[in-house]
Computed example of a mutant assay.
Amino acid sequence: MDFSISEEQSMLADSVSRFIDNDYDFERRQKIAASEDGFSKELWQTFAELGWTAVPFAEEDGGLDGGPVEMMLMMQQFGRGLMVEPYLANIVLAGGILRRTATADQKAKWLAPLIEGSLQTALAFAEPQARFDIANIATTAVKDGDDFVLTGKKSLVLNGGHADLLIIPARTSGETTAEDGVTLFAVEANAAGVSMQSYATVDALNAADIELDNVKVSSANVLGTVDQGYAVLQDVIDEATLAVCAEAVGII
């Protein structure tokens, strides 16, 4: 079996490696991590201009048609630089949900600005009681006319404190730990009823604990099919696990 990478993949990895070597030394990383935002908005825009934020998305959506290999090559270099910019949270996690579920209108509204670097996002999948079971979702979404009303708590939401858009898995039917009955919602972070406590993680990333108190969300903000969001969530978490493993290789 041939595990060699293509010329294009090698060029992508080299571009990130050169950036780390020339523009992201440890001293600069520490200054960025200690800043008010905890990451550099200027560098994030540079990532977009270099095409890095577009890598895993389809060409028809403004992306570069990359896959898991490209993502892991980039994450390995990000790990080498101990980078604090929210690539995992924005592109792999939240972007992974949007890539798999968003309609054309939703892509124009959220995916396009994400790729352009102007929208910050977060996937709020973990809950205080869930431990490591991503199907353990106590947050509920109750139908109310053409809307849903979301109530619940999310914990350790990467990039949650900076997010303009939250992607919320919530239970629309079934028992708390059932895989069926999970629906994915796009929720504006400044929506009425959304509150959060933002903090830095031990590795200088941003995270937040989020509470949803009767948050009204339009049916137009459902991502994918009602009650069928768990399989998508599982796929995205699996891909993010690969990304984190690649990042760890770079750190080593």
Rank of each mutant, 00 (worst) to 15 (best):
W44H: 04
N190L: 15
E8Y: 11
M83S: 03
P86L: 00
V226Q: 09
A141F: 08
F39A: 06
D209Q: 05
Q9A: 03
K109F: 00
G79A: 07
S155L: 09
D65Q: 14
R100H: 15
S195K: 06
E116I: 13
S4Q: 08
A58H: 12
V226N: 06
G224S: 00
V16E: 00
K153G: 00
D238C: 08
Q129C: 03
A243K: 13
A240G: 01
H162M: 03
K31N: 15
V222R: 07
A138E: 09
D227C: 06
I115E: 01
Q234R: 13
E85F: 04
P86H: 13
H162G: 01
T53R: 08
N221L: 01
I251N: 11
M75V: 04
E70P: 05
S17F: 03
N22M: 06
K41I: 11
I115R: 12
F19I: 05
A231V: 06
Q197I: 15
F78G: 10
A231G: 04
R28Q: 07
C245S: 02
T53L: 12
A122Y: 06
A122P: 01
F125K: 10
A246M: 03
A186K: 05
G51H: 05
G161L: 13
F185T: 11
E85M: 10
A220N: 04
I167M: 11
L43C: 05
A104W: 00
A102E: 13
V226L: 07
F148G: 06
D144S: 13
D235A: 08
E211F: 02
T225C: 06
L212P: 02
T225R: 14
E59I: 07
I137Q: 12
V16C: 10
Y230V: 00
A124P: 12
G81I: 15
V222Y: 05
W44V: 04
L166Y: 10
E127Q: 00
L158V: 15
A89R: 09
T241H: 14
L73K: 09
D2V: 08
D21V: 07
S155F: 01
A135Y: 04
D209Y: 09
A189M: 15
L98G: 08
N221E: 08
S198W: 14
E7P: 01
Q234K: 15
I237F: 07
D180G: 14
T151Q: 00
V157E: 08
P169G: 14
S218W: 02
S118W: 02
G224M: 11
V142F: 01
T177F: 13
I137R: 01
G193M: 13
W110V: 12
I137G: 04
D180N: 12
A207M: 08
G95R: 03
R131C: 04
Y230I: 06
G174K: 10
D61Q: 09
V202Y: 12
I137S: 02
L43Q: 08
K216S: 07
S15K: 07
A246G: 15
